[in-house]
Amino acid sequence: MADISTRVPSAPPQWVENFAKLGLSAKGVVYCLIGILAFMSAFELGGQSTEGADRSGTFQFILEQPFGKWLLGIVAVGLACYVLWRFIQAIQDTDHEGSNAKGIAKRLRYAFSGLIYAGLAYLAANMALGNGGGSGGDSRQTLASELLQQPFGQWLVGIVAVGTMIAGLNQIYHGYSEDYKKKIRSTGLKSDVEDTMIRAGMAGFIARGIVWLVIGYMFLRAALHSNAQEAGGSSRAFAFLEDASYGSYLLGAVALGLICYGVFMFMRAKFLPVYR
């Protein structure tokens, strides 16, 4: 009996490639702006505060620029392309992860990433259309509040906390690992471009990991104290870092790392094959 997978049409590689590159570029824009706004808030430049240094604040920043609605609309389309690519990665296994437990776990991670960015694409589109999408509260506080109202709510919030902290540690480990470095070195890039990309990726993954660790820690406090107000997203994480000893320098370093992650996304879109 013929393999049923041969009967399923696959997406044209170039079509997937173009959508992935646009999506990675849009993600790079978002992370560069988040990093810039966080850096400005760290050193009180331009009256910027940590409250506006999250994704919603970044979209609002874009909206306030000349032709802001058009620019934010382009970002929304780019993020939608990123979502589509993530789902194609998960469903068609374009990275050849396989169907064993490890492969399925990675493909589920791609799908989960797609769902997260689908929400961001929707938020950006809503704000670009003038529907006030950026006026809501902290989505993570809302999540913590909803979970705390369920049976075993504190345990559920604790599970989210542990999962987020593990994800943060995994990001930091990935920044030091050889996994993404091997992919970069296998493409035959010029040595200076290769080195820049590896360093940007390392700084970016570590910075993202630190932010996720702080978010996980805040969820853990919310679970222990049964208080959803102690949970928060990236803006609260930035405020937490800023309040620490030498907080401005700590937040500034993390902000630069997030900018590096954005640069890494741009370089990945330009230099690395995204469909294998």
Rank of each mutant, 00 (worst) to 15 (best):
V83Q: 05
G57C: 06
C81A: 13
N100K: 14
F87E: 00
W155S: 11
Y122R: 14
H96W: 08
D54G: 15
L148K: 07
I88L: 15
G52M: 04
Y122N: 15
Y117N: 08
K106M: 08
E64F: 03
L129E: 06
A105R: 13
T94M: 12
S56A: 15
A161L: 08
V75S: 08
G98E: 10
G98F: 10
G114E: 03
Q89I: 07
L84Q: 04
A111Q: 05
G137L: 00
I74C: 11
I159H: 02
R55A: 06
Q149I: 00
Q149V: 04
I104P: 05
G47W: 02
Y122S: 13
V83T: 07
L72E: 03
A125C: 12
L123Y: 04
L147T: 01
G73E: 01
L84R: 03
A80T: 04
E64L: 13
L148W: 08
W155M: 13
K102L: 09
D138P: 09
V160M: 10
I88H: 04
T164V: 14
F152M: 07
I62D: 10
I91E: 07
W70G: 14
D93Q: 10
Q149C: 04
G136N: 06
L120R: 01
I88G: 01
Q65N: 09
L148N: 14
D95H: 12
F152P: 00
Q141P: 03
L63Q: 13
T164A: 14
V160A: 13
V77M: 12
F87Y: 10
L79D: 06
L156K: 04
V83A: 05
S113D: 13
W155T: 09
Q92Y: 11
A101S: 10
A42V: 06
G134M: 03
L63F: 10
A111M: 06
A125I: 06
G103Q: 02
H96N: 15
G68M: 08
K69L: 07
F87G: 00
K106Q: 14
S113R: 03
G119R: 09
V162R: 00
Q65R: 12
D95Q: 12
G52V: 06
E146S: 01
R86V: 01
P151W: 03
L123E: 12
